[in-house]
C-alpha cells in the first residue's frame, strides 16, 4: 500500500513544462491547485457548474483537436457528472485527459465522505464506459507516466485517478471573473472575446 499523494505536488508535476496544454479546473480545491502551479492564459477555472468540468473539456477538445486538453477535478465533482465518462468514451477524443484528485472527501464542505471512499471505483467506471486508458495513480512513477501522456495527442482519451491525502494547503484563488476567463482562453487560441 503506497502512501497517499500530496495534491499540490501531483498537479504541479502534471503541469510542469507545459507548452500548448489547455486546462479546465473543476470547482473547489482542484482550481486552487491549478492556480498554485501558476496562472496561465490557457487555464479555465470553474467556481460553480459542479459536474461540468469534464464536458467543458470535451467541447474544447473537439474544437481544438490539435491541442492537448486536461481536465483536473475532484472526486466529488466527477461523481456529479459521471455520465461524462460515457460521453467521452463514445466521442473518444485523443487530445483529452482527465486527472481526478481523489481524497474520498468533500473537503470544501466539511470533509464528508464521497462515494469513492465507500464503493465507487472511478477508474473502473471510466473503463467500463470505454475509456480504456484509465489508471489509478498511487506513486510518483505512475504519476510521471500520466504526466508524460497528458501533453501529447493520442488515439483515445486518458484518465488518472490520483489517490491524494487530505490537505490543509492554503487556498490559492485565481480570478472568479468568468467572462474574463472565457475571453482570455479564446484570446489564447486567437479568437475574439465573443
Amino acid at each position: 500500500m503506497s502512501a497517499l499523494l500530496e495534491r499540490r505536488s501531483v498537479v504541479a508535476r502534471v503541469l510542469a513544462g507545459r507548452r500548448d496544454l489547455a486546462v479546465v479546473g473543476g470547482l473547489g480545491a482542484a482550481t486552487y491547485d491549478i492556480a498554485a502551479a501558476g496562472d496561465h492564459e490557457r487555464n479555465f477555472y470553474l467556481w460553480g457548474a459542479m459536474g461540468g468540468a469534464a464536458m467543458i473539456g470535451v467541447g474544447l477538445a473537439l474544437a481544438q483537436p490539435g491541442v492537448p486538453v486536461l481536465v483536473i477535478t475532484g472526486d466529488g465533482e466527477m461523481l456529479m457528472g459521471l455520465g461524462a465518462f460515457a460521453t467521452i468514451g463514445a466521442q473518444c477524443p485523443g487530445n483529452l485527459s482527465l486527472l481526478v484528485l481523489d481524497n474520498g472527501l468533500y473537503e470544501e464542505t466539511g470533509a464528508q465522505q464521497t462515494h469513492t471512499a465507500l464503493t465507487t471505483d472511478l477508474a473502473a467506471v471510466a473503463r467500463a464506459c470505454g475509456i480504456a486508458d484509465a489508471r489509478v495513480v498511487t506513486d510518483d512513477v505512475a504519476l510521471g507516466g500520466f504526466a508524460e501522456r497528458v501533453h501529447r495527442i493520442g488515439n483515445a482519451p486518458s484518465l488518472a485517478v490520483a489517490k491524494i491525502a487530505p490537505s490543509s494547503a492554503p487556498k490559492v484563488l485565481p480570478s472568479r471573473d468568468g467572462a474574463w476567463l472565457r475571453a482570455r482562453m479564446r484570446g489564447a487560441f486567437g479568437y475574439p472575446a465573443q
Partner: peptide, 26 residues
Amino acid sequence: MRAVPLTTEEEGVAVLAGACLGGQRA
C-alpha cells in the same frame, strides 16, 4: 459537424461552453 450524443442535457450546456473556449459554435 460533430454530433455529440449526451447522457443528460446538462452535459450539453458544458459542451457549448467548451466549444466556445476553443473557437467553435455549438
